[in-house]
Simulated assay, not measured.
Amino acid sequence: MELVLKRSYFEKGTNGALFINGNLICFTIELPWKDNQRNVSCISEGTYEIVARHSHRFRNHLHVLGVSGRSLILIHPGNDALKELRGCISPVSQLSGIGKGWSSRGALNKLLALCHQAFERKEKVLLTIKS
């Protein structure tokens, strides 16, 4: 299964729309592009594998693998990129501004349901990020 994240870059954040087979799943928020710098930038455009992950802090969420020069890039809930993200991606149900959105947990749950169906079919889940 391939997820496609189409991004728009702004000085104070990055907004995106996440698609599967051309169908909109949810929107995304991220930090602004700052040359892939750890903790202050969104990650580089490209294609990455996604796997399931669980932690006490975020509960069920997703892990983006193979990001050059970066580690532990997650897809987890958050509604304000500058306050809640350190390079990760947060799905949101609706955008409310640059790097801001609403109902992140609901958007993540929708995305998790689709990804877990693919995992159960033993499919790789890929994320392609582009502008």
Rank of each mutant, 00 (worst) to 15 (best):
E2F: 01
L3D: 00
V4A: 14
V4P: 11
L5E: 14
K6F: 06
Y9N: 01
F10Q: 00
E11G: 05
K12D: 10
G13D: 13
T14G: 00
A17G: 04
I20M: 13
N21L: 11
L24D: 04
L24R: 12
C26H: 05
C26Y: 00
F27L: 03
F27M: 05
T28A: 14
E30Y: 05
E30M: 08
L31A: 02
R38G: 00
R38P: 06
I43G: 06
I43M: 15
I43S: 07
S44P: 15
S44V: 10
E45Q: 15
E45P: 11
E45D: 15
G46P: 10
T47V: 13
A52M: 06
A52T: 04
A52I: 01
H54A: 05
H54D: 06
R57A: 14
R59L: 15
L62F: 11
G66M: 00
G66K: 10
R70I: 08
I73A: 03
L74V: 07
L74M: 14
P77L: 05
P77N: 07
N79H: 05
N79G: 09
D80C: 09
L82V: 02
L82C: 07
L82R: 13
E84K: 02
E84W: 00
E84P: 08
R86I: 03
G87F: 07
S90Q: 04
S90I: 09
S90W: 05
P91F: 12
V92D: 02
V92R: 12
S93W: 11
S96M: 07
K100D: 09
G101P: 05
S103I: 00
S104Q: 12
R105G: 02
G106R: 14
L108Y: 04
N109Y: 06
L112F: 11
C115R: 03
H116S: 09
A118F: 06
F119D: 03
R121F: 14
K122D: 14
K124Y: 01
K124S: 11
K124L: 09
L127D: 02
T128S: 15
T128M: 07
K130H: 03
K130A: 04
